[in-house]
C-alpha cells in the first residue's frame, strides 16, 4: 500500500474546517458546498491548486449526513483521491461511496448524538441547575463535547487509515445499541427529575411527599399526547392557562 501523503497540518486544517461544514446549508443540495470546503485542503495537497473538472464535480454533488460523521467520510474520500491520483484502483468511486454511506451515517449520528448524548448531558445539567448551580452549563458542555470532539478527530483519522474498512469498524462499535442505552439512561433521569420536582412542590405546599405520585399519570398523559403529535407549545399553553385561570379564580 502506498504510504500516506497528507501532512498533519492538512489533517488539522480538515478537522478545523469540519466546524464550518454546514455554513452554507441550503435546501437545494444541503451540504454539497460544505463537503467540498471540508476536503479542499486535502485535494489541494494531492492535486495542487489546479483541480480537474472530474475531481471538482464528484465532490460538489448532493450531500447530506450528520455533521459529526462528515470528517469520517472526508478521511476516506481523501485516501481514495490519493489512490486515484497515484493511478491505483479504488473499489468504489468516491462519489458512489459518499452516496452509499451518507444516509446510514446520518441516521446513526442523529440517534447517537441528537437522540442519545445530548438529552442525557442536558438532563444531568438540568439536575445541577435545579440546585441553582452555575456549573450546570459547564458540565453539560463538557459531557456533550468530550465524545463529540473526539468523534470528529478519530473519525477523520479512521476514515483515512482504514478507508472502506472504516464502515466495518463503525459497525463493530455498535453505535445504535449505544444510542439505545443512552436513551434508556435519559428516561431514568427524566423520572428522577420529575420525582424531585414533584417532591419539592409537595414540600413547598407543606403536604406529604406521597402526593407527588399524582404527577405520574399527568406526565404519562402528556408523554402520550406528545407521542401522538401534540406539540410542546400546545401543552405549555394548556398547562399555563389552566394554572393561571385557577390562580385568578381562587
Amino acid at each position: 500500500m502506498k504510504s500516506p501523503r497528507l501532512s498533519w497540518l492538512t489533517f488539522l486544517s480538515v478537522y478545523f474546517r469540519s466546524f464550518l461544514f454546514q455554513a452554507s446549508w441550503n435546501f437545494e443540495n444541503l451540504q454539497n458546498l460544505g463537503f467540498f470546503y471540508l476536503v479542499l485542503p486535502g485535494l489541494r495537497s494531492i492535486y495542487g491548486d489546479e483541480l480537474s473538472t472530474d475531481v471538482q464535480q464528484r465532490q460538489v454533488t448532493y450531500f447530506n449526513t450528520h455533521p459529526y460523521f462528515a470528517p469520517l467520510i472526508a478521511g476516506t474520500i481523501l485516501r481514495m483521491e490519493e489512490r486515484l491520483h497515484a493511478g491505483e484502483d479504488v473499489a468504489v468511486d468516491p462519489d458512489a461511496y459518499k452516496k452509499m454511506v451518507m444516509a446510514p451515517f446520518a441516521a446513526m449520528g442523529d440517534a447517537l448524538f441528537w437522540g442519545g448524548v445530548r438529552p442525557l448531558a442536558a438532563l444531568i445539567g438540568l439536575l445541577l441547575a435545579s440546585q441553582g448551580s452555575l456549573w450546570a452549563p459547564v458540565v453539560f458542555l463538557i459531557l456533550f463535547n468530550l465524545p463529540h470532539l473526539f468523534f470528529r478527530g478519530a473519525g477523520l483519522v479512521l476514515g483515512y487509515v482504514q478507508e472502506l474498512r472504516a464502515i466495518e469498524t463503525i459497525h463493530k462499535c455498535r453505535l445504535p445499541d449505544l444510542a439505545i442505552r443512552l436513551k434508556e439512561s435519559t428516561t431514568i433521569l427524566i423520572g428522577v427529575l420529575c420525582a424531585y420536582l414533584s417532591f419539592k412542590g409537595c414540600e413547598h405546599q407543606d403536604i406529604s411527599g406521597v402526593w407527588g405520585f399524582v404527577l405520574l399519570p399527568i406526565v404519562l398523559l402528556f408523554a402520550w399526547l406528545s407521542h401522538k403529535g401534540v406539540t410542546s407549545l400546545f401543552l405549555v399553553l394548556l398547562t399555563t392557562s389552566s394554572l393561571l385561570l385557577l390562580a385568578l379564580l381562587f
Partner: peptide, 9 residues
C-alpha cells in the same frame, strides 16, 4: 415537566 413529558414521548 411539560418538557420532560415531551422528551419522554
Amino acid at each position: 415537566i411539560v418538557g420532560a413529558a415531551s422528551l419522554l414521548g
